Amino acid sequence: MTQIRNAQVADADVLVELLAQLDYSAAGFIKEKIRALLGHPDAVLLVAEQEGAVRGFISLHFIPQIALAGDFCRVSYFCVDSRQTSQGIGKQLLEHAEKLAKERSCDRMELHCHSRRLRSHQFYERQDYEDSPKYFMKKLG
């Protein structure tokens, strides 16, 4: 059975491992980032746990909209351990995130998923997410 709970600083090592599966190296600052997310009123960091082990996580940000009645929830990072995929963990995490978003008056979910992550695209399409092809980014500093 999968339990979804708020992340804790004690989850840092496993989150570093999961982020590495997404090609991110967060080892030097992960604890600081977890603390910041846990203390932020418009952010939620959740983990999925099975048999006492973290199998995945999702990071959410709730963003008010000035021009639209509803707000939106952005999924900033989302990963299920590559050894645990296709077991429903990701679906459970995403459904839990959507429930939280509705509770916070969000009328949509948004996420960015790199073009190289084809299996992730298929997963999102099965969850009724639609492709929104424009995404612009500028690195600062």
Rank of each mutant, 00 (worst) to 15 (best):
L94M: 15
G88C: 07
L140D: 05
Q92F: 02
F136Y: 15
L94D: 01
E51P: 03
I66G: 05
E95S: 10
Q65S: 15
K134G: 00
E103A: 15
S76G: 15
F78G: 00
Q127T: 02
L15V: 14
V54F: 05
K91A: 13
L100V: 04
C113T: 12
V80C: 07
E103N: 09
L22P: 08
G28M: 05
S132D: 08
Q87N: 11
I63K: 08
Q3D: 11
R116E: 12
G39D: 12
Q8M: 13
H114D: 14
C73M: 12
S132M: 07
C113L: 05
S132V: 06
L111I: 08
G56D: 10
A26I: 01
L18F: 12
H114L: 15
Y135G: 01
R108L: 12
Q127L: 12
H40Y: 03
C106T: 02
S25C: 10
I4G: 09
P64D: 01
I66N: 07
I58E: 04
Q21M: 06
S82G: 04
H40I: 01
E32I: 02
S115D: 10
I58S: 03
F62S: 01
E17D: 14
M1F: 05
A69M: 07
S76H: 07
L100T: 02
G90R: 06
M1A: 12
L93G: 09
R55A: 13
R35I: 07
L22N: 05
A36C: 04
C73V: 01
